[in-house]
């Protein structure tokens, strides 16, 4: 109960800060831009052509669900990462920089509990943000092309291709996929959270996180790194795409999420130990 009260306070702080909403605003703008360009240029023709070349009826699969899937896959890895790194990188380091932590640490709360509360708030933010992008993307796509239709999924890099003709089934997979993205993105937030616990500036925590993420993504794209792709964090984080396959490869997904969970725990513990050993002078 006490933990929930503290978490509510932490979320109140998080969602009261204007920079928390930068991500929401940026995603809304981007979604609008994608849909406008898509609707009023030859983007629609391109998609219909792609669907029909694969032997499917574009009237069924060119839909709000397909558009939402595209928005989420393309935008989340790049733009989402920036905002998760920004918010999680701030959560401890910014409070320390601003002096708020002194007031909190003068209270009878252990440092472990304090970090658990903050980490939980970051995880909630990450998850809700992914769902916000999904829901807002869907609403805009539905406004642009109508709510009916199936789901067309094509992700060549992870070798996933699937179609769902029924709206209900497609929506279920989309919701499952969004859950998977949310869980994956918590690893990125955990990395930024760890840096935030160090004695560094909030901006440094964000930059370090993004540097690691982008190096991981860049190296993964070199052909001669292909045999080692399963060692890359971002490759493991992409495992949610398999949730769209007709026969979901649960073993592969559980393996990747177990590894990511281990990483999250490691990042948290390193952050905690660094935080635990620090002196906070009044």
């Amino acid at each position: 109960m006490m933990f929930l009260r503290q978490l509510r306070g932490e979320l109140r702080k998080l969602f009261a800060r204007p920079r928390t909403y930068m991500g929401y605003g940026a995603f809304l703008m981007m979604e609008i831009l994608i849909l406008v360009v898509y609707r009023f240029t030859d983007g629609e023709a391109y998609m219909r052509d792609l669907i029909e070349r694969n032997g499917y009826q574009s009237d069924i699969y060119f839909s709000s669900l397909t558009l939402t899937f595209m928005v989420m896959t393309i935008s989340m890895a790049l733009l989402g990462s920036i905002f998760f790194a920004l918010v999680a990188g701030d959560v401890v380091a910014k409070e320390n920089e601003d002096g708020n932590l002194r007031l909190v640490l003068g209270r009878p709360i252990s440092r472990l509990r304090l970090l658990l509360v903050k980490y939980s708030a970051v995880a909630v933010y990450t998850f809700t943000f992914v769902f916000f992008v999904g829901v807002s993307g869907y609403l805009m796509a539905a406004a642009a092309v109508g709510r009916d239709g199936g789901l067309f999924v094509s992700e060549p890099k992870m070798k996933v291709f699937a179609v769902y003709s029924q709206w209900g089934e497609g929506m279920l997979r989309l919701a499952l996929g969004a859950t998977g993205i949310g869980v994956s993105m918590i690893t990125l937030s955990s990395l930024a959270f760890m840096f935030s616990c160090f004695r560094i500036k909030p901006a440094a925590a964000t930059i370090l996180t993004l540097a690691i993420l982008f190096v991981d993504m860049i190296l993964q794209n070199f052909p001669f790194f292909r045999p080692f792709e399963h060692w890359f964090i971002t490759w493991r984080m992409s495992c949610w795409i398999h949730l769209f396959e007709h026969d979901i490869p649960w073993a592969r997904i559980v393996e990747s999420y177990s590894l990511l969970f281990g990483l999250n725990l490691t990042f948290f513990m390193i952050g905690f130990l660094s935080f635990r050993l620090r002196d906070f002078k009044t």
Partner: peptide
Amino acid sequence: LRHVGSIFESPSFYEYLSGWENLRILASYS
């Protein structure tokens, strides 16, 4: 620290929240 209150020189509150919300959040740690 259960029965301790403290004040520091130039206390830093959450500027973007009201005084009441600050009190509510800080008290939740006690």
